[in-house]
Design a protein around this nucleic acid. Structure first.
Lengths: 226, 226
DNA sequence: CGGCTGATTGAATCAGATCAACTGCTGTGG
DNA sequence: CCACAGCAGTTGATCTGATTCAATCAGCCG
């Protein structure tokens, strides 16, 4: 069990490369949890007592409007930490979190973590880099949402996937409805955007797989975003 | 001059409460700069060599699309630090910065700052809290931009100002064109949104001053944002 | 084979962007 | 002191991309 925990911690990007002693300290305060798909981990407005890391599975972070429409802010997969924001601030969760698959998560209580940070400045620097990277991502997302139309945002998203999967034969990592929410739109509009890119000869789609026929063309469309 | 620098550093919220020795170290590497209104400090994509703090004046952070449309991400006033992100990543600035007023700024090269950070865990925690808060701000901004229509976003913005100014007799802190860019729209549409809220009896406007007649009504409109 | 869910398509509608004209204020210079 | 240039803001008319509503389709599972 403690082995599992240590191994899990070591695979969290936030803690990668930490000396063993540090990991052991963290292991003392961290908890390993198995969570079924569809479980809500926390909801917007609740006090932030713990932050999380994904060991396996997938978690989505979202905000809902009274109308019931939901905006997906992020999807976290294995190795990623999330919800550390309220931990530093001692405030409430700004968004809700729900598992998309059966998942294994690490939960780390706020109090213990602050202690560890105080003792290890290098860890603090690592955390700052992580936050900076996340910030950079949000800047890109805000620019996308407000400066671009849906087909252009989709082009940007596909190029992102291309960079992640190292191939032009993509397999969509999320159901299309989720992708729509991530791009700040709805399935119908996303569907039409896919069609538009196909009509322009930029991509070919069949089900959840997409072939990029003209990455340069896509890049031109998505230009100046991220 | 060195006096000015020290005094200026001490008034930056991020450095508040820092031991004198640390401040002196920062003073050695920091530069005080007087910058005229409208100057561009850096543009998105340039290598991030320095980060900044506002001593007096105002600086806006924004992204622009090839079309020329701009999205304002943030406006910083006296006492606030910005552009810390590239400090930790050693990469490029994710957005552009421009002075809105004649301003006095502190510029701090990243190398020296990292040194100070390493030595002072308290400062590191402060930076983390700052980055976290900014992150939270962006989460809210994304939710606003994607879940809401312009009059609703405006209502949210006015309530934000109300919280900041502790009064229902607001004075807009930015020219309306800038507010439009912050809300992800254009001056024409913002103007109509103001009119709409007035017609509904929620506010009264005259020039840059706005009186909130029905804060609850505004809150209902903006609900679920922030 | 139904029946559910996710995805697609079509038609109608709407919010916001665009284009253009106009107002009002400010500051500069003759 | 007035005139005019210049800019911020407003208003109106039009256009367009996206959402909404509704119907249909494909795949999957009991």
């Amino acid at each position: 069990m403690e082995q599992d925990k240590l191994a899990a911690l070591a695979r969290v990007r936030l803690f990668e490369g930490l000396p063993k002693a540090q990991l052991a300290t963290l292991a003392e305060i961290a908890q390993l949890k198995r969570v079924a798909a569809g479980q809500i981990l926390f909801e917007a407005g609740q006090p932030g007592t713990h932050f999380y890391a994904v060991v396996s599975g997938k978690v989505r972070i979202y905000r809902s409007a009274p109308s019931g429409k939901e905006q997906v802010l992020h999807v976290f997969g294995a190795g990623e930490a999330f919800a550390e924001v309220p931990v530093f601030e001692g405030k409430t969760y700004p968004a809700s979190a729900q598992t998309l698959d059966d998942s294994v998560l690490l939960t780390i209580p706020r109090k213990g973590f602050v202690e560890v940070l105080r003792r290890d400045p290098e860890l603090a620097l690592g955390v700052m880099a992580l936050l900076s990277a996340r910030l950079r991502g949000f800047v890109g997302q805000i620019a996308q949402l407000s400066l671009k139309e849906v087909p252009e945002r989709l082009a940007g998203y596909l190029l992102l996937l291309r960079a992640a999967q190292h191939t032009d034969e993509l397999v969509l990592d999320l159901p299309k409805g989720q992708i729509a929410a991530y791009l700040g739109t709805i399935p119908e509009t996303l569907s039409r955007a896919f069609k538009k890119l196909s009509d322009q000869g930029l991509i070919e789609t069949s089900g959840p797989s997409v072939r990029l026929l003209d990455p340069e063309g896509l890049a031109a469309l998505a230009e100046a975003v991220r």
